[in-house]
Design a protein around this nucleic acid. Structure first.
Lengths: 337, 337
DNA sequence: CTGAAAGCGCTAACAT
DNA sequence: ATGTTAGCGCTTTCAG
C-alpha cells in the first residue's frame, strides 16, 4: 500500500519518454481523446501512475486559456459572520465545483464598483467565472457580466435580474408558514417583518400578505410591525405588538433570530407558546433548536444554494446559459406552533 | 470617472511596444525592480493603465514556479457547519493572504491519507502552501509537510507537533474561567468536559485541573463529568451531576453548546443561576448571547486564528519557518457567573 | 491514429 | 540600466 511518489517535477514529456510515445499522445490520453490505440493508452496510464505525475495547472492554463478557477466573492461588509450560512454555502460550492474539475477561489473583500483590484483579479485571465453573495449593489457584477465573465449571484439581485441567480423561495416559504398558522386555528396572525429594503425581507412580507389575501381579507396594519432581522429588533417588535393591545394568537416572524427575541418577551410576560400565541420563524438556524422550546420554522436549503450556484457557473463555463433558480423551503414543525 | 477598459487580452509584449521598451523592462517595472530609469517606469505604468493590462497568472506561474495559491482545506467530515467558526476563519484567511499577494483556494473534501485526488492537487505544482483545519488524523499533513509543502494547521495537531500550528490557548482559558469562579466565591467547582480525545477537550480539562491544583487541592472526581461537546451531552452531564448528589456551586463547561444544555436543566429544576450554581462556558458562540440569561464564557479570537494561519503560511512561502502560535482568550462576564 | 513543431505570456539569466 | 534569448509544461494545428 505505498503511496505513489508524488514527484514534484514529473512533466508530460517524461511520461512520453517512459511510455515510448510523443508528448502529443500523452496529452490526448490525459484529455480523454478517443482515437488513441488501446495499448498506448495503457502504457501512458501506467507511466502516469508509476511516476506519480499530475499535470501543471499553470502550463495547461497558459495553453488553453482556461484557469479552472471560480472566484467566490463575499462582500465583507456583510454581517454574515454571526451565521453559519456562509460556511455551509461555500463548502457546498467547493464540493460541487470539484465535479466539474473547477476550484473555488475565496475572496473576502469590500465590494464596490470602484474596486479595481478586484476587477483585475476577475479579469478573465485569472478566473473562469465568479459567484457573488447577495450584494448591496449589483452594478459591479452587472458590468463584469456584460463583459462576458460568467457570473452567478446567490440571493436575489437588487436590480439586474438578467444575471443568473439562485435564491430560496422566500415568498412561498412565508406564505406556507402563515397558512400553517391559519389552518392550525389562528384567527389573527401578526407578523414581524425583516428589513424591507432587503429582498428577503420584502419577499417574506409579501408571502405573509398573500396568505392573508387568500382568505379574502386585507392585511390589518396593526398586526404588522417592522424589524430589521436582528435579535434585538425581534424583542422590540414583540413588545410593541403586545403593548399596542391588538389581539393576536399567532405570529409569523421573518427570521429565527427575531423569533427567538420575540419568544423571550413572550416568556417574560408569561404568555404561553403556542397555546396563547403560536410562533413560526424562518431560516432554521442552529439556535432554533436550542432553547427549552424548539422553534417551528421554515427551513431553507442552504447547502442547495451553494451547489446550485456551483452547477450553474459550471454550465456557464461550458458556454450554456442556465436559468435562475428558486429553491423550495420546508416547514419544520417543532414546539412553538 | 470611466473605468479602464479591462481588456482581456493585453499582453506584456504589447505594453512593451506601446511604452517603447523591451518586455524585460516591463517585467522589471511590474515586479518593482529598482534599477529602471524613472522615465521608463512612468511610461510603462502609463501604458499599463491605458490598456487596462493585468498580468496572466498562468504565464507568471509557469515562469516562476510559484502559483500564488494557498489551499485552505476543510475535512468535510467535521461538523463545523453548525458553527459560524469556519466562515469567520476562512474569511480572515482570505483577507490576510491578500496582503502577501496570495489567494485562498477552498477545498472541502473528506480527508484521509489514501486520498490521492487531494494529494495530486496539493502537489507543489498547484499550490504554494496549505492551511488545514483541526484534523482527526494529521498523518497526511505530516507527509505533505515532509515533502516540503508549506503547511499550517489551525488547531493543535494530534501527533506531529513539528508542523506549525495556531490554536487558542485552551488550557489558560479554562484555567482563567475556573479561577474566576473560585474568586467569585465558589467552594466546589464542577466541570463538564468536552471530548477528551480532542485536544481542545483535553486541554480545557487540564486548565480546570490546574486551577484546582493551584489551590493546593486535588480534583474531586465526583465533580467532573464527561461530555462530548454536544448540546445533548451537556444536558445529560448536568442531570448526572445533579442526580449524583455531590454538592457544587459552580460549573465550568468546556463549550457553550453544552453550557446551554446544562443551563436548560438547571432552569427546569428551578436552580438559580448564578446564585445557586454559577456557570461559565467556552467559545463565546453566538447563541451564548441569545437566551434570557446571557452566558459568561471564554471568548476565542476566531478571526485571529485565521489571520495568524495566513501570515504564517505567507512567511513559509517566503522560506522562513515561523513558530507555532497560541492565541490568548478573554473572559466575557455576562449573566451566569 | 500519431508525431513534429509552434506557441500560450511571462521571467530570468546572460549579454551589453 | 536595458535588451536578447531561452525556456516554464502543456495543447493544438498540421502533416503524415
Amino acid at each position: 500500500m505505498t503511496q505513489p511518489p508524488m514527484n514534484q517535477n514529473v512533466t508530460l514529456a517524461e511520461i512520453a519518454e517512459v511510455a515510448g510515445v510523443s508528448p502529443a499522445t500523452v496529452s490526448r490520453v490525459l484529455n480523454g481523446d478517443e482515437r488513441v490505440a488501446e495499448h498506448r493508452v495503457e502504457s501512458v496510464n501506467r507511466a502516469v501512475r508509476e511516476l506519480g505525475y499530475s499535470p501543471s495547472r499553470a502550463a495547461r492554463s497558459l495553453a488553453t486559456g482556461k484557469t479552472g478557477l471560480i472566484a467566490t466573492i463575499i462582500d465583507s461588509n456583510l454581517e454574515v459572520f454571526t451565521d453559519p450560512f456562509w460556511g455551509i454555502v461555500t463548502t457546498a460550492i467547493s464540493r460541487t465545483l470539484q465535479k466539474s474539475n473547477l476550484q473555488a477561489l475565496l475572496m473576502a473583500t469590500p465590494l464596490n464598483k470602484a474596486d479595481n483590484m478586484l476587477a483585475a483579479s476577475l479579469n478573465s485571465q485569472q478566473v473562469d467565472g465568479a459567484i457573488f453573495f447577495q450584494l448591496h449593489d449589483d452594478g459591479f457584477v452587472a458590468e463584469l457580466f456584460k463583459q462576458g465573465l460568467p457570473c452567478v449571484v446567490v440571493g436575489t439581485p437588487k436590480s439586474s435580474k438578467s444575471i443568473p441567480y439562485v435564491d430560496v423561495d422566500n415568498a412561498t416559504g412565508a406564505r406556507m408558514a402563515t397558512e400553517y398558522l391559519i389552518t392550525r386555528g389562528a384567527k389573527n396572525v401578526a407578523t414581524i417583518t425583516g428589513d424591507l429594503a432587503i429582498s428577503a425581507g420584502r419577499l417574506r412580507y409579501e408571502g405573509y400578505e398573500a396568505a392573508i389575501a387568500a382568505l379574502g381579507q386585507a392585511v390589518d396594519k396593526n398586526l404588522v410591525v417592522n424589524g430589521n432581522f436582528s435579535h434585538e429588533s425581534g424583542i422590540e417588535a414583540m413588545e410593541e405588538l403586545l403593548d399596542s393591545g391588538v389581539p393576536f394568537d399567532a405570529v409569523f416572524v421573518a427570521n429565527d433570530l427575531m423569533a427567538l427575541g420575540a419568544m423571550s418577551v413572550l416568556n417574560e410576560r408569561d404568555i404561553k407558546v403556542p397555546e396563547q400565541v403560536a410562533v413560526v420563524g424562518f431560516d432554521d438556524m442552529f439556535a432554533a433548536q436550542l432553547g427549552r422550546q424548539k422553534l417551528t420554522t421554515v427551513r431553507q436549503d442552504i447547502e442547495g444554494l451553494g451547489s446550485a450556484a456551483a452547477s450553474m457557473i459550471a454550465e456557464m463555463v461550458e458556454g450554456r446559459r442556465p436559468a435562475s433558480r428558486m429553491l423550495q423551503t420546508e416547514l419544520i414543525q417543532r414546539d412553538t406552533a
